[in-house]
Design a protein around this nucleic acid. Structure first.
Lengths: 252, 252
DNA sequence: CGACCATTTGATTGCTGTCAATCAGGGTGG
DNA sequence: CCACCCTGATTGACAGCAATCAAATGGTCG
């Protein structure tokens, strides 16, 4: 039986092992174009900027990301936006909403996205008949809770410099977990500064100023080519807590 | 089979039906003192201020609250504290942590607390053998995610007045769901202003200033005797989103 | 080339934190 | 019963971080 509550990061001395078999491992790349079907599963394609599902509208599907980045966000009536979570391949969304009721948040593709789509009703049946699925889903939800809690600390009790540093640290770690990239190597990083700000309760202007500081200190570089963390130790030191070991733990 | 993903609040036109049978309904009040055992379950008592489990230390137990308030919080090295969630009877904690690894947050009793305690290992076995438990746990976790997301919006994109109003609104609703209290009636409200501030990323001083505004507007009263929302509509209007119907939906 | 988006930067405003002092209520011990 | 103390609430003065507004830059795409 799968380990319960596996962490996205895991303890410092244990190499993180992402749990991603909610619905089979992602298929080999390149064979998916547009919308296809395989083994009774529907793969759906979303262009960058498209919505997987909308806020305040009913959503009947559960999505498992295969490729690309997605943002979960909530928008207030006056336009203020809060990004609740960045989703990467293996993550699921569409589950935490009242079935039949309006979704509390929207899911938007930040890049071109491929996802496995399953009706919520079918999802529920699978939970009832397959304990392994249930444990896997509980893993995923626990991961979402931990991510949300980290964001709460970032937004509520860290200043802009610490918050941006921590968010980039977390996202870099997750991307490398999934892609198996080498620490210190540049990773693909689609979010704009405005999206980073929306995730941290900051303005895009201040995210820009904050990134400048991080660059000037030689800690990282971030541009359209990607994110590269040059000095993970210095970055961790400004987080106000222990995060060591997760940055360089899984070298080749 | 239980409904999946039942919301704590539920849609506006559906009376909220709290899902609380993760581990049986709470027993009748008054029969629990100190530590007892019943039907193979351990009920444990915590005095106000005691920790159910500590941050950065291993925790092997899952707690289901029977009576009292608990805060989940994360503390940074320099003492800054972020309350991640207020837990009420029926809520579970101790689940979202790496088994064997250090807990990412602490759980502290805000009042005298009674909880059902179950080892994580036993919890996992129950998930594997009982689909109903799994669905119930998924419900609970979904509720925690929604609560965290609401807090993210409060802290990230609302000002102090809106954030305090929304937090009090949510907590009042939850308390009344559990206790079946009448809308407009004063409910017991243990959190201090400092704890409210720690939940919203605000200082206690500013929470105090904010509460004064809410009181001066005749929207609510809050003191050691409890919380009473006099004007739910006015309160909702300052939230920047649709929350109507949940305030007066379940009259006697 | 022109439009557009994202980034960058500066000047100013303002919300909220910090610090400090005071007040109020409850509990304890004499 | 009262003095004392401790916690939490309250209020004011001041400082600071980040928002807002605005303008300029640069890269991409049609």
């Amino acid at each position: 039986m799968p380990r319960l509550m596996a962490l996205r990061g895991g303890p410092a001395d244990v190499p993180p092992i992402p749990r991603r078999h909610v619905f089979d491992p992602p298929p080999a790349e390149g064979i998916l174009t547009g919308r296809t079907r395989a083994v009774g599963r529907e793969y759906r394609f979303f262009a960058s900027g498209a919505e997987l599902f909308a806020q305040d509208r009913s959503n009947e599907d559960v999505f498992t990301l295969v490729e690309g980045w997605v943002s979960l966000h909530h928008i207030l009536e006056d336009g203020r936006r809060q990004i609740l979570e960045f989703l990467l391949p293996g993550d699921i969304c569409g589950l935490v909403s009242p079935p039949g009721g309006p979704a509390q948040h929207a899911a938007e593709a930040l890049t071109d996205v491929t996802a496995v789509v399953i009706p919520q009703s079918q999802f529920v049946s699978m939970l009832a008949t397959n304990a392994d699925y249930a444990a896997s889903v509980i893993d995923r939800l626990s991961g979402s809770i931990l991510a949300a809690h980290e964001s709460l600390v970032d937004i509520g009790r860290r200043n802009a410099l610490e918050a941006v540093a921590h968010l980039l640290f977390r996202l870099d770690r997750r991307v490398r977990e999934i892609g198996g990239a080498v620490p210190g190597r540049t990773v693909d990083f689609p979010p704009t500064q405005e999206q980073l700000g929306d995730a941290l309760g900051l303005s895009a202007a201040h995210v820009c100023r904050t990134l400048r500081v991080l660059r000037e200190r030689g800690i990282l570089s971030l541009d359209r080519h990607g994110l590269c963390i040059h000095d993970p130790d210095a970055l961790c030191r400004m987080l106000g807590q222990d995060e060591r070991g997760t940055g360089a733990a899984h070298a080749e």
